[in-house]
């Protein structure tokens, strides 16, 4: 009984749902009614269910972040780590409070003020910090490339460095030099070598994805 529940029921659910979704794309006519009473393709309803499950997972995730940081705030040895975690918990609670006040406050003035403050948190704190982190990614990439040339002096590391340098240099408009020649080199590197490698990798990834997906769908014996 346990084996049937563990192996075959998940397989049957996955196989039936997958078949319904595939058939839904083959026969796109809406066959079922959604919660608003409107005709909807069945795969859309299944996707909505998946989104609802995903939303619950997000709540679990937020609970997980909060719990980890509250524990860190009380148990970390280093005081700066404690302050970091406390700051995180404080920021999260403040933002949550602002959104709750914006939505549920009976006084319209308070509601508007809280909504503006919550929007301000997004516009003036979260967005700029996100943009700074994205800029930091470029710095980290450059640092990693320098480390490669210092730590791994193989032929492939040198080829990698050369390709990066040539591609970057041929992107820059250099005064007095023939732009056609440089754009030709860049075009050749990206559209011949790069494209060939990319297609080879993608074909492998597609095959790997298909076979791995089948392996996951098929009932497992070793549990």
């Amino acid at each position: 009984m346990g084996r049937i529940v563990r192996q075959w029921i998940p397989f049957l659910i996955a196989a039936i749902v997958a078949t319904i979704v595939l058939l839904g794309y083959t026969f796109p006519d809406a066959l079922v009614f959604d919660y608003r009473g409107q005709r909807t393709p069945v795969q859309h309803i299944l996707a909505e269910w998946a989104v609802i499950v995903g939303s619950f997972a997000l709540l679990l995730g937020l609970w997980n972040i909060g719990r980890v940081h509250i524990k860190k705030a009380f148990r970390q040895r280093k005081i700066e780590r404690r302050i970091e975690s406390l700051f995180f918990v404080f920021s999260a609670l403040t933002t949550l409070f602002l959104w709750v006040a914006a939505i549920f406050s009976p006084a319209q003035a308070v509601s508007k003020l809280a909504a503006r403050a919550a929007q301000g948190v997004y516009n003036y704190i979260i967005s700029p910090v996100g943009a700074s982190l994205a800029a930091l990614v470029v710095v980290a990439l450059a640092l990693t490339a320098f480390r490669l040339l210092r730590a791994r002096r193989s032929i492939w590391a040198i080829v990698f460095g050369l390709v990066v340098i040539v591609t970057l240099l041929t992107t820059v408009p250099l005064a007095g030099l023939d732009p056609g020649l440089f754009s030709g080199i860049r075009h050749w590197l990206i559209n011949v070598f790069g494209m060939a490698g990319m297609r080879g990798l993608l074909l492998g990834v597609v095959l790997g994805t298909a076979v791995t997906a089948l392996r996951f769908l098929w009932p497992r014996r070793e549990m």
């Binding site: 490339a145 791994r152 990798l201 492998g204 790997g208 791995t212």
Partner: peptide
């Protein structure tokens, strides 16, 4: 690729 020489590329991940 430049960060580590112990890298599984593309389809190798599924192995």
């Amino acid at each position: 690729y430049p960060a580590t020489d112990r890298l599984a590329v593309g389809e190798e991940l599924y192995a």
